[in-house]
Amino acid sequence: MPAVLSEPVSSDFPTTVNTSTDGRPDFISIQNFSFFYGAKQALFDISMDIPERQVTAFIGPSGCGKSTLLRNLNRMNELIDGIRHTGDIVIHGHSIYDPLIEVISLRKRVGMVFQKSNPFPKSIYENVVYPLRVAGQKTKTILDETVERSLKGAALWDEVKDRLHESALSLSGGQMQRLCIARAIANRPEILLMDEPCSALDPVATVKVEELIQELKSQFTIVIVTHNMQQATRCSDKTAFFYLGRLVEFADTQKIFANPSNKQTEDYITGRFG
């Protein structure tokens, strides 16, 4: 079994974190990937390499396929009936469609944060440790350490450390989203997928989440879908522009927003269509 992505569901608590300073430029390699919802083709022959420990933004008008592609990176789309794909997605040298891959294990390695924060109706503490409990972890010291590490990593510890056993639903919108990020990083994933994580947040909460993203990228490879182009310029190192299911341009964020090569990209980011 490929060691990185395949683990039994009830494995020991993972302790490996990629701390090497050299990021692979093709950490996530999307290779001639097409995707279909039944008869309707949503993605057309996408090929791109997403670098390790950087923030990559997916931008484009509504319906362009950016969220569809994001959800394919951890095979979340398989929850929908009638889907199929061609091509491949390779993470850290291993195809995520390898029959030996357990999709649950994949999703431990490729965490996801959604547009609308979705804390469980449990305490703050239980929300963070939930993935570990599902994996069979029962040791209190490990659970406590995970809670503190994850909440600190999500820049939420100081705000909640004295009320960990209060309901997560008592938190503000921005705090809930950061709690969801803490939950996502509790299992030490390699990749974080974020689907418009700030669109439901006020400006102050948005700034806090954006700052958090900058801190997290030293440990995780982050892919973020956003409709907010200013956010893409603030947060991301690389930006991919999609239109009608196709990848139009993928380059350093500064290049995309200062001097895009493709006229369609320029027309979109300057507001001439979209």
């Binding site: 182009m229 200013q230 310029t233 927003f257 200062a258 001097n259 895009p260 320029e266 980011i269 300057t270 507001g271």
Partner: peptide
């Protein structure tokens, strides 16, 4: 107001 990009900027 408009946060211009690329050629507009």
């Amino acid at each position: 107001r408009f946060h211009p990009f690329a050629s507009d900027l």
